[in-house]
Design a protein around this nucleic acid. Structure first.
Lengths: 281, 281
DNA sequence: CTAATATTGAAAAATATATTCCAACTCCGA
DNA sequence: TCGGAGTTGGAATATATTTTTCAATATTAG
């Protein structure tokens, strides 16, 4: 017998077969339908207690619906709990997804492209929930209010940073891209003021250049916005707003698509609040 | 020592003491902050695995924040998970969210982010179909076979090009990024040979720099791969392989997420065919 | 450089949890 | 009332998970 694959399927099955269940099993069925959360989190012992039955009855119940045991049934409830908690649970889903595709052993470039596409789609879907409206608005207000914008980002973060620099200057914002050419970046700090904004993009391993630049900017009381992929990062200490992005990932390699999407949303959001500057991208 | 009573208290405490934690404990701290769900549901063993530490380290972590053990700490996360799980179903919450952003003055930044996400998801889905396996394989073979790779891309294409340059050189491929600093790009042509590859990324309006660089490379019989968003573009004349990407678009503004996804797939595809060079991304 | 101190990994021990088993029980039809 | 199929409780067993311990390693101060 094959077990239900989703909570809904299980519910349906329980409802349908309810009358043919034995007394104890009906007790449990009632509880399953009423308190799915308990089933996600509690041990079979306490479940049994709450239903007023023996632990073995819980196992029997699970088996009678096609599961290997109570534990396997609990997985269903846990996954569902996580799915409902989407903004928090997507890392788990990405991992689940990775496990799935991991099984398909073929590793042609097309396969990689496909995995990358899927994982980016998943990750993009959650960007909405990971970024708060308040933060987004605040960042855009910072850009609007600042005299000059400094942008820093090295290594993997460079493409994102360079987009900011390019796009903002196209929108007639005075923007300086601290690109490390000529190890010139020290001197930027000198001219920063509290009316300026620094946008720092950085992913592990955090480059010392970015750190130094941000620290320098902080000394000058420059507003600081950081974009990173973890809440804990050496930059956020100084940040006025710290945006966190979870990018897609395929076999160790993290994507930049979602970070790029965020960067562009910020720029475009800014552009629409200052329509006179829009020329064309 | 008395343990935090709420997740927020715990978070605060972790953040506050982060610097004084040992290396392993910091690893765990990061994970605690970034993936609270995992801590609610997974066993100590898998948590340890995901943090890259020993199970005992997780217990130590919990104790260092005043808990009796890891299990007690997990209770906190579980309670929180349950609390956050309002009576609303998932679908309903999404709907609510959509309504919210729908109401927000039609062009709030959050609305733009949301539209951008949607359009990128759509566009990503098409990427699979727009790129042929043959082309993808050929590009990767070009990279493998070439002595040197030259990468060019200006304006909006710059972030994509810079990613290629960064990632390929990390994989120990001899890569030259023609970045236009010092209008230096003319001279690159001189050293190109038929054993080299040029990757040119360009979107309208096609920058004369890219055009000139590509033309120069063609003269030297250099292999040429172009990435663009239209089949008809001044670059493709010279191209051995011309990849075409349709990026997402929101109110005039074209995204770069899909192009970035393609770029990364190429690089990773290359990396997997030359495994010895993979260090970390 | 050395010694004291702290951190870490690995595995053993303790604990908790799930599952199986079987004797006792219930229910029903003959 | 009897017999048997199906159900149940609870103990026994198997499994899994967490916690402790300790030797090895790394870090720090003198």
């Amino acid at each position: 017998m094959t077990p239900p694959k989703t909570i809904e399927a299980l519910r349906a099955s329980v409802l349908e077969n309810y009358d043919s269940l034995s007394k104890r099993l009906q007790q449990i069925a009632k509880y399953v339908l009423d308190e799915p959360n308990d089933f996600a989190l509690e041990t079979v012992a306490v479940l049994a207690d709450r239903c007023g039955v023996q632990p073995s009855a819980i196992v029997r119940f699970a088996k009678s619906f096609g599961f290997d045991g109570a534990s396997q049934m609990q997985k269903l409830f846990r996954d569902d709990l996580l799915a409902g908690q989407s903004s928090l649970g997507y890392a788990e889903r990405i991992r689940q997804f990775k496990d799935e595709v991991g099984k398909a052993k073929v590793t042609g470039p097309m396969q990689i492209l496909s995995e990358f596409v899927d994982s980016n789609i998943l990750a993009l879907g959650h960007l909405r929930e990971d970024i708060s409206e308040r933060d987004l608005n605040e960042v855009i207000k910072f850009i609007s209010d600042s005299e000059n914008v400094y942008v820093a980002g090295f290594g993997r973060a460079f493409p994102i940073a360079s987009y900011f620099a390019y796009a903002l200057s196209r929108l007639n914002k005075r923007t300086f891209f601290i690109d490390g050419v000529g190890a010139y970046y020290h001197s930027y700090n000198r001219s920063m003021t509290s009316r300026d904004l620094m946008i720092a993009v950085s992913f592990p391993p955090y480059s010392p250049e970015t750190l130094e630049t941000v620290a320098g900017a902080a000394e000058k009381k420059c507003k600081i916005v950081t974009i990173s992929d973890s809440r804990v990062n050496p930059l956020s200490t100084h940040a006025s707003v710290a945006l966190t992005v979870k990018d897609g990932e395929v076999r160790q390699f993290r994507s930049l698509s979602v970070s790029m999407c965020l960067a562009q949303s910020i720029v475009i959001g800014y552009a629409f609040q200052n329509p006179k500057d829009i020329a064309s991208d």
